[in-house]
Amino acid sequence: MSHHLVALRAIVLREALRFVHQRERFLAALVRPLVWLVVFAAGFRAALGLSIIPPYQTYITYETYIVPGLCGMILLFNGMQSSLSLVYDRETGSMRLLLTAPLPRGWLLFCKLLGSTAIGILQVYAFLAVAFAFGIEMSAAGYVAALPALLLAGLMLGALGLAISSLVRQLENFAGVMNFVIFPMFFLSTALYPLWKMAESSDLLRDICAANPFTHAVELIRFALYGQVNGMAFLWVLLSLAAFLALALWGYDPARGMVRRKG
C-alpha cells in the first residue's frame, strides 16, 4: 500500500477511534435533530401547509419534509465540530504533529476532512434509523442513493469548517463563528421551509436561501433520499466544495502563514 493510503487509513481510523470515545458527542449529534423532529415539527405541522413540490409526489407531513434538512444539520454541526477540534488541535499540537508528516499538506488536510465526513455520515444513518422508527420511511434505494449525496455535502461542509479553522486563531473567536455560520446557514436554507414559503415573506430572503450552499446540500440529500438527482444542487455543492477547499489550502499554506501565531 502506498504511503498516501497508509496515512489516509490511519487518519480516518484515528477519527473513528476518537469518536467512539466521545459518547456524549454522538448522543448530542443524535438527540439534536430528534428534538427538532419530534418537538419542533409537531408544533409546526399545524401552522405550515406544504404543497406538493418535487421530489415529493404526494402530500407529506412536515416531519417528512424536515428530515433531509436535519441530515444536513448533522453534517453541518459535525463539520464545524471537527474544525473546532482542529483549532483545539492546533493549540495543543496534534495538528502540528500531523503537518510534520512527510506528505503533501493538501493530502493530509483532505484525509482529515474525509475522516470527519465519514463520522458525520455514520451519525446521519443513525438518525435516519431512529426517524424510521418514528415512521418516516424512505425506500431502500433511497437510503443507498443518499450515500454519495451525504458524502459530497459532508465534504463541502467539512471543507468550510477547515477553511474557517485556518482563519480563526483562537477558540473564543471560533464560538462567534459558530453563531455566525451555523445558525444563519441553517435558518436561511430550505432545511425548515421550502423556497416558495420563504418567498411569501420576502424575495430577498428567498434569494439568500437560494444562494446558500447549505440549501443545495439539503436539496441534494432530499432528492437523493427519493432516488433522484438534483443537478443544480449537485453543481452548487461541488463548486462550493472546490471554493472552500481552495480557501482551506490557502489558509494552511505554510508560506502564507495563516497558521502563524504570535510566539
Binding site: 496515512a7 487509513r9 487518519i11 484515528r14 508528516a101
Partner: peptide, 20 residues
C-alpha cells in the same frame, strides 16, 4: 500531543502510518 483515549501503541501506530 498524544491522544489520551488511545493506547500507547495506537498513538505510535498512527504516527508510524503518517510516515508510511
Amino acid at each position: 500531543t498524544l491522544d489520551l483515549d488511545l493506547t500507547i501503541r495506537q498513538n505510535l501506530s498512527y504516527f508510524a502510518a503518517l510516515h508510511g
